[in-house]
């Protein structure tokens, strides 16, 4: 674990540099531990694949003070208690207008379209983090036989529910938004409700399985 300064009022707690289940476990434990501290000087905790970003109130603390404290508190992560993960089944319409990049991905991977779908549905994914837009789950780990690069220039608008892939990740866009990932399908399931806590269908550590709509 390394703590690094990011901005005047932000630091990163880094557990690794690759998408990896062990790194994810540490991030998740660190996240729940940070929440349990109930510190008023920590105003935002954003866990992701390999790190936790902490934004703090610099009127109440300093980088040095907080980094020392976190180094001490995060030394023994194995004892942290966490909520059990939920499993979500997500039905997807693949290809066509729903997934304009499916044929590109198939070509890129030298597979048939149905093989790409089959492999996308075969995995039980882990929610490594939630972000980009509210409720967007970053899911891994994608079968390496169906990986594709991000778009060099992101699309400015894609519909809500779009399912995308990029490198070893897959994800679902909860809202109409810009998108830099290859879009292979779309779901009708609502992923975020601002009126109902905990707001996001998916939380870090949850599990997801995709099911093709026939």
């Amino acid at each position: 674990m390394i703590i690094q300064r990011y901005a005047e009022n932000a630091l990163r707690i880094i557990f690794g540099s690759q998408i990896d289940m062990e790194v994810h476990e540490q991030v998740r434990r660190a996240f729940f531990l940070l929440i349990s501290l109930h510190r008023i000087d920590i105003i935002e905790i954003i866990p992701s694949f390999c790190s936790c970003l902490v934004i703090y109130e610099d009127d109440l603390t300093s980088y040095e003070t907080l980094a020392d404290l976190l180094n001490e508190r995060l030394a023994n992560l194995s004892a942290v208690e966490m909520p059990p993960p939920q499993v979500h089944e997500i039905t997807v319409h693949y290809g066509g207008d729903y997934g304009p990049d499916l044929s590109f991905v198939a070509k890129h991977c030298q597979l048939s379209v149905s093989e790409v779908i089959e492999r996308h549905c075969a995995e039980l994914y882990t929610v490594f983090t939630v972000g980009f837009t509210p409720g967007f789950p970053y899911l891994g780990t994608l079968d390496e036989r169906i990986t594709a690069p991000r778009l060099e220039t992101p699309r400015t608008r894609i519909p809500a529910g779009s399912v995308g892939i990029a490198q070893r990740q897959t994800g679902i866009y909860p809202f109409e938004s810009p998108a830099g990932w290859q879009i292979i399908g779309r779901t009708d399931i609502r992923l975020f409700d601002p009126a109902r806590p905990p707001y996001s269908l998916m939380q870090i550590g949850d599990k997801v399985r995709f099911i093709e709509v026939q």
Partner: peptide, 8 residues
């Protein structure tokens, strides 16, 4: 591109 991470 990087492994997606929190930004300020």
């Amino acid at each position: 591109s990087i492994v997606s991470e929190g930004i300020v």
